[in-house]
């Protein structure tokens, strides 16, 4: 069973479906028309090749073939770095940190990142095609308010736990206590270094006297 082709057809389908849901994505995609981008993720058994036209074609690079023309841009990274591709302003920094390797036209990688980052899908509008405007609006309003409430409760709980751990139960250390402890460790380190230097001088004096 061609597993690579199952994966790439899924990625391709998902990608193109998402692009179709954002009417403005065509203009951003047009900037990449005729270009190719190879993405090698270390954890994947094969690189992915993206070819851009009025939609995105996704293929698997089966083998490195000397007869294949190089893609316009080739990037290598690991799975942790992959989400950071969305922010094209970070690309240079990632390259300097050696988290990303890039060969070819950096503009293609940047534009690809922008293509994903700037996806703006009106999910309420999409739902309304199936349920009608009123139901879609009510569903999304309820979901937004539930989400905001859950977020508030989570923040409150985090604050309560933190307060309890540092003050009520004294299980965790307060920040000021931590700072004081760090200072004491630094002082101790300096004292140890001074003592070590003094011992070395005394050893040298003894050697000179014997000599």
């Amino acid at each position: 069973m061609p597993i690579a082709q199952i994966l790439t057809s899924g990625v391709e389908l998902g990608f193109n479906q998402l692009l179709k849901l954002d009417p403005d994505s065509q203009a951003r995609l047009a900037k990449l028309s005729g270009k190719s981008l190879q993405v090698s993720v270390k954890e994947l058994p094969f690189p992915l090749l993206f070819n851009f036209s009025e939609q995105v074609e996704v293929g698997a690079v089966i083998e490195s073939n000397e007869h294949n023309q190089a893609p316009d841009c080739l990037i290598e990274l690991d799975l942790n770095t992959l989400p950071k591709l969305q922010d094209s302003s970070q690309l240079t920094q990632l390259i300097q940190q050696k988290k990303l390797s890039l060969i070819g036209d950096i503009y293609i990688a940047q534009t690809f990142g922008d293509l994903i980052k700037e996806l703006d899908i009106d999910w309420e509008e999409q739902l309304s095609k199936y349920t009608g405007d009123v139901v879609a609006h009510q569903t999304f309003s309820s979901a937004k308010s539930l989400f905001a409430q859950a977020k508030q409760e989570l923040e409150k709980a985090a604050t309560n736990i933190g307060t309890r751990m540092t003050q009520a139960d004294a299980v965790a250390v307060k920040p000021i206590e931590m700072a004081l402890f760090s200072e004491q460790v630094s002082d101790l380190r300096s004292d140890a270094e001074r003592l070590s230097a003094r011992v070395q001088r005394l050893e040298q004096t003894l050697k000179d006297l014997k000599g």
Binding site: Q5, G34, G59, V61, Q69
Partner: peptide, 19 residues
Amino acid sequence: GIHRLWKRYTIDCSGVRAG
């Protein structure tokens, strides 16, 4: 539907590029 995967494999092996 597997013929679609066989054909995708063919394209992956073709090295096709713009132009």
